[in-house]
């Protein structure tokens, strides 16, 4: 019995050590830079002021701002463990979207009524985000029709709608995964015929830790508040 105990202890210790290791690596990634770029692309490991213009150094993202802390809170959508396929055919969990401000909407590609306008709303929001923040925002379109919206179909839809860039992600889930996710967003939907769904029109903004910060309800409503929230969230 005793040797087993020892082995267990050793094992947990190893696990702990390897965890700590990872964290150290992640903090090492923090970099500061002069906002005026007085010394070109030079970066600093610590906060301070620029030697040339005396301005406070700014935390810069590399490759994206918020990959720093390892954990996420109770209220984060990264707690969901469901699996999803992207339009590129890659299998992911929501956790892998961590690090960027996330803007979610639920649609289905055969939709003729509300979805084109929801998609237009998304594009509209995207176009109003200042270009320097663009790489910190990910726009995610989740299909409520996982049966028909295969990765291929989603990819095609992305191309048709000029949403094929890196900032756009399309997700196909399992039926229960989609139901669960809709519940988190408080989106209601129902299949009313094989190719038609009724659904609520909600655009949701999550911070880089997967916590909900804003929801916009309705179609073609004023996007100002949502855009303001996205910018605030990226800046925080």
């Amino acid at each position: 019995m005793k040797p087993i105990k020892y082995i267990l202890c050793l094992f947990t210790l190893i696990m702990l050590v390897s965890c700590a290791d990872k964290k150290a690596k992640e903090t090492a990634k923090v970099e500061y830079q002069c906002p005026m770029k007085c010394q070109g692309e030079k970066t600093f490991a610590k906060a301070g002021s620029c030697a040339v213009c005396k301005m406070d150094l700014r935390l810069i993202s590399k490759p994206s701002k918020k990959t720093l802390s390892a954990g996420f809170s109770d209220e984060s959508i990264f707690n969901l463990t469901s699996k999803w396929n992207t339009e590129e055919g890659k299998e992911i969990t929501l956790k892998e979207l961590k690090g960027k401000t996330l803007v979610f909407v639920m649609i289905y590609t055969t939709c003729k009524a509300a979805c084109p306008r929801l998609v237009a709303d998304m594009r509209n929001i995207e176009s109003k985000i200042p270009s320097e923040l663009k790489k910190d925002v990910n726009y995610v379109l989740v299909s409520i029709d996982p049966e028909n919206d295969t990765p291929n179909r989603l990819k095609q839809f992305a191309k048709e709608n000029y949403m094929d860039g890196d900032e756009w992600t399309f997700l196909q889930g399992s039926e229960s995964g989609v139901r669960e996710f809709a519940n988190v967003l408080a989106v209601k939907y129902k299949q009313i015929s094989p190719i038609d769904f009724s659904h609520s029109n909600i655009i949701s903004v999550f911070n880089s830790q997967g916590e909900l910060v804003h929801q916009q309800e309705g179609l073609g409503v004023d996007n100002k508040e949502t855009i303001k929230k996205i910018i605030e969230t990226v800046d925080n």
């Binding site: 139901r179 809709a182 209601k188 939907y189 009724s198 659904h199 609520s200 029109n201 309705g218």
Partner: peptide
């Protein structure tokens, strides 16, 4: 029920199309 959220009788659904 598993799909209780398939019932569109809430405030926000008034803004919906269907």
């Amino acid at each position: 029920t598993s799909d209780f959220n398939s019932v569109l009788i809430s405030g926000e659904s008034r803004k919906d199309v269907d």
